[in-house]
Amino acid sequence: MILEDAPLILDAFDVHKSYGEHEVLKGITSEVMKGEVVCLLGPSGSGKSTFLRCVNQLEKPDVGSIQINGELIGYERRGDKLFELSDDRLAAQRCMTGMVFQNFNLFGHLNAIENIMLAPRLVLKQDKDETRHEAERLLDQVGLKGRERAYPSQLSGGQQQRVAIARALAMKPQLMLFDEPTSALDPQLVGEVLSVIRGLAETGMSMMIVTHEISFARSVADKVMFMADGVVIEVGPPSQVLDNPQAERTIEFLSEL
């Protein structure tokens, strides 16, 4: 449950992003409060994934400010000037967000537990035993106890995605970003991943999820954001945006599903 005066985890304001002549994001403003689950819906090419990638600086926005937990991302403000951060400072900022990719992107040369342990050991300089203990707990949380030594190639898509979620959680992020987490999965494997995400929502994790699973969005989201052609068309609780859409684009999109 989100409190009325819950702090803002994500505060994105007027985010623009172009690739050459093509403007993918035309001014996105979005907020995520602590413990809130926001689902991003919209046709492909609408800029949902690009926006998500801007939030953790995998893409650098051309214009617009993004703050996570009150910290400006990508820049340092000194007086009336913004100084771009170096790659190393950006890397440190990315620890505030955890990202789950469509294609899992598990490290192929490492087994499940090593995948989870790599970043906490390398970036947070955590103690080895403590990290292993934590990684085992996370694997248990995503329902993969006992698969510590399995390599990504030995796991199903659903299992790989669950390891990827555990890997992101190991960095104790303030905000979890999911970029179409079930789009690359066989239909019978979608459920196991969605139930892990649902469980995560119940722990009070703040999340932003790009998805095409409307019924999942309806049941898990506190807020649904519908995007098309690089702009936000409609925002609101699922009961409003999904069941009683006002904008033409939203009605059209939902009727095609």
């Binding site: 995998l58 890397a91 490290f107 790599l118 970043a119 390398l122 970036v123 947070l124």
Partner: peptide
């Protein structure tokens, strides 16, 4: 090596050097 490997390493907070040498 697929680009996603480097992106995943970056998203976990690894620096470019760490991503190159460790991933």
């Amino acid at each position: 090596v697929p680009k996603g490997q480097d992106e995943a390493a970056s998203s976990l907070g690894l620096t470019k050097r760490q991503a190159m040498w460790r991933v």
